[in-house]
């Protein structure tokens, strides 16, 4: 896809994200919208994927910040892995789009996530597994910046560097906000780039909404080192009143606010 096609795809996915969350009357729009461009770049440009979502040759993606699932679900439906009608049933009984991703219920989900810090640990194990099998699958894992408070993330990062997992790309959705406020107020992360480098990652800081920066960053590989992309993002990106506003971490737009959001995203 060209950059302009990717942008258009991201707009559609954001629109569907808001529609899904509004219908579900619960969910996490803020961190979904910050992650959308990165997800679109992965699924429509970078990952090796097949018509069969279980094809063993596929690259793996682990949404460690599992609460940001609506855009991922919209992508899986768009790919044809799940019936598009399921977009109407986010967070509903017996439906595949659970409140947090569940790999046994939803085709295309490579790892059940939602309990923060665990996805990155499992992704590290997957990358190690592919190394042991001498398989060339790439593993991508997205963590939230608030999620980095979890000690398990850093246990996993240490292991990723120790086992020289250059088939692992960790993407930090650095939107600077978590449920209780600014990440630097809740638990200061300080110089994240220096931290990742000290942990043995080849690290890049990019604009997480600019495909011209995202695409080359995803291509980068450092031999013998895992790769970290710190993607500077805006929580709530694409909906003016949600942008950089922590109130939209886990709130759902209704009425006029919903209309405004849909209009801004090019919907009806």
């Amino acid at each position: 896809m060209t950059v302009s096609e990717l942008k258009e795809k991201a707009r559609q996915i954001r629109l569907e994200t808001i529609e899904m969350v509004a219908k579900a009357t619960s969910g996490h729009p803020g961190g979904s919208l910050s992650a959308t461009d990165l997800l679109v770049a992965l699924y429509y440009s970078k990952m090796r994927l097949f018509d069969d979502p279980h094809d063993e040759r596929r690259d793996r993606f682990v949404l460690s910040k599992g609460h940001a699932n609506p855009p991922l679900y919209a992508i899986l439906a768009d790919k044809g892995y799940v019936d598009k009608d399921e977009l109407n049933y986010l967070r509903r009984l017996h439906h595949p789009f659970q409140g947090h991703p569940e790999s046994n219920k939803c085709p295309g989900i490579d790892c059940s996530t939602g309990s923060l810090g665990q996805g990155i640990s499992v992704a590290t194990g997957m990358a190690l597994g592919f190394k042991l099998k001498k398989a060339d699958n790439q593993v991508y894992a997205m963590v939230g910046d608030g999620e980095l408070d979890e000690g398990l993330c850093w246990e996993a990062f240490m292991a990723a560097a120790n086992y020289k997992l250059d088939n692992l790309t960790v993407i930090v959705d650095r939107n600077m906000l978590q449920l209780d406020g600014n990440t630097e107020d809740v638990m200061a992360h300080g110089d994240l780039k220096a931290k990742f480098e000290a942990f043995g990652f080849a690290t890049d800081v990019i604009n997480g909404h600019d495909f011209e920066e995202i695409l080359p960053a995803l291509d980068k590989k450092a031999e013998g080192k895992p790769h970290c992309i710190i993607a500077m993002t805006v929580k709530g990106k694409g909906v003016s009143y949600m942008e950089n506003n922590v109130e939209w971490h886990g709130s759902v737009p209704k009425g006029e606010q919903l209309e405004t959001a849909l209009k801004e995203l090019g919907g009806k």
């Binding site: 640990s121 499992v122 590290t124 194990g125 997957m126 597994g129 042991l132 240490m158 292991a159």
Partner: peptide, 28 residues
């Protein structure tokens, strides 16, 4: 030795890594 994975003193990661290995077809 090639099938022995040391996770360091990190029991949470021990389990997470094992889950990842299981997801790539191993029996950890």
């Amino acid at each position: 030795p090639d099938r022995y994975i040391e996770t360091g003193i990190a029991e949470q990661d021990l389990i997470g890594m094992a889950a990842g290995l299981a997801r790539t077809g191993f029996v950890p």
